[in-house]
Design a protein around this nucleic acid. Structure first.
Lengths: 201, 201
DNA sequence: CTATTTACATACATCCGTGATTGTATAAAC
DNA sequence: GTTTATACAATCACGGATGTATGTAAATAG
């Protein structure tokens, strides 16, 4: 049984991507061998090399899939009456994505803790387009809040946006590092609420 | 010329540790070969294997050296009149350590971005003893501030401490990711000031 | 119905890193 | 001054991963 139909081929491609994510998460990217990925996907290395040029190509393909949920769900509505509430909702949405989309969560965990940012991966470390867009969205939202008099007096929207940006980075890091049943995850919601409330006038 | 004196041997050991840090930073831990470390230290693999059991042992030896500056310099004085100011000073001290101790900074960069937390390294991800101690120190300091009426009304010291803890994690991450001349590093001081000021009554 | 391409599996050559072993000149112990 | 332990250097054997080349059966195009 060789030479599958196009749809079947696309299916094995996704199987390989899923397997890669699992093996990357377990072994780390560097120690992951394409043999193990193939075995986890129920194919041979031949299939992997057919769909992907090499491990790096496979890695970037896996990564690309994880960016979609964020651009979809983490948005700032410009017409919102209370921009601070919009920011709070955006931060919550990030946690929700990690909670109910295991594939995305695992990919972020790989990017955060199972990948060494050297050579072909070093470019990922500098702020990516998506991150810059998020920071820009935060800044704009804080500016709208300031214009409406909702921001606490004396706060520079740009600084506060960077502060929240930093907060999100730390939040994701610690959230991923904590055990699922640990109190930190339950407390994340309170952390977000406090974070935004501190900035409200 | 073999069989050095004890002091010379200790010197080559430190040369190897220094070299390891440089190569780890450039190649990542996984891709680092002991051959390259040896060459960078001006010795052969024989010397490396004499002083260290293997790459993992070398890695942990390098890591250990970086923890010292923090326990020395990032402290909370219990008798301080203004605990919030103490917290701010502690946060600043972290940045200062990264600024004027390149070895420590590089080691943290390796731990943050050049190391995959799997198998023998997976234990490092969970909160280490030092991190827990830092969080405990933060909590105690915020509690003292609350007792003195310095903390903003309605804030739970434990939550705020976690918030600052998260902030520090994000701060280090972004500080390391930014270029030395980038404005983010210059703005870190303002971020810290704002962060603490937001919590003051 | 034939030709060609697709979607893999299998087999092969190569290199690279590791750990262990052995060699050795000198420092230190006695 | 001899012996022994030290601090490496040099060599070896081995497995393991990669990339490529080849084989092949079925799907698709014509």
């Amino acid at each position: 049984m060789v030479r599958k139909t196009k749809e079947e081929a696309e299916l094995t491609r996704r199987h390989i991507l899923d397997a890669a994510r699992r093996v990357f998460l377990e072994c780390g990217v560097a120690r992951t061998t394409l043999e193990r990925v193939a075995a986890a996907a129920g194919v041979t290395r031949g299939a992997v090399y057919w769909h992907f040029r090499n491990k790096t190509d496979l890695f970037f393909a896996m990564r690309e899939q994880a960016t979609l949920p964020f651009v979809d769900r983490v948005v700032f509505d410009e017409g919102e009456a209370d921009p601070l509430q919009g920011i709070e909702r955006a931060l919550r949405e990030i946690i929700h994505i990690m909670e109910d989309q295991p594939e995305t969560r695992e990919t972020i965990e790989i990017l955060s803790f199972k990948c060494e940012y050297v050579e072909e991966f070093s470019g990922l470390r500098l702020r990516t387009e998506g991150q810059l867009e998020f920071l820009a969205g935060l800044t704009a939202a804080y500016q709208r809040a300031a214009a409406k008099g909702l921001l606490r007096a004396g706060l520079d929207p740009a600084i506060v946006a960077q502060d929240t940006f930093v907060f999100v980075g730390g939040l994701i890091k610690h959230w991923l590092s904590s055990e699922p049943d640990e109190c930190f995850r339950a407390g994340a919601s309170a952390l977000i609420r406090t974070h935004v409330a501190l900035r409200r006038a």
